[in-house]
Amino acid sequence: MPLIPVDDQSFLRDKFAKELVNPVNILLFTQHDTPSAIPGPECMYCKETRELVEEISSLSDKINLRIYDFVADAEKARQMGIDKIPAITFDGDSGGRVRYYGIPAGYEFPSLIEDIIDISRHSTGLSQETRESLQKLDKDVDIQVFVTPT
């Protein structure tokens, strides 16, 4: 049984065909599926997250998937700023700045899809006006947003 329902898969295949421009490389940081052989805590939902990104990448030639082991590829994880797993990030322009920790299910799933498209198009939903005013920032700002449905 695929994780993404079959009719959503064909919808996504069409959407990707229409909207993707440049290739997108998804980097997944995970842990091998043999927790007993590898010391350390077992990674919850790593397996499901891997299956999910495998399915997503199978829906377009423009989407490539690279899977890294959080322990064996620790240096790569550090480079991309990944400190927990499962983590999904992208290389290229957005290099390591867009990161999904945990499994992107429910409401997170459509956002992941939109992010893949934005990354491929080198675009975001920000208006020219917003970009200009952001350019005026003269020091680093750390924004963290926490949401609940209310």
């Binding site: 993404i4 329902p5 959503d8 996504l12 999910l52 299910a105 429910g106 799933f109 459509p110």
Partner: peptide, 12 residues
């Protein structure tokens, strides 16, 4: 267990 549907109505 997890939901990986695309809410299509929201994207049109």
């Amino acid at each position: 267990m997890f939901d990986f549907r695309i809410k299509r109505e929201e994207t049109v």
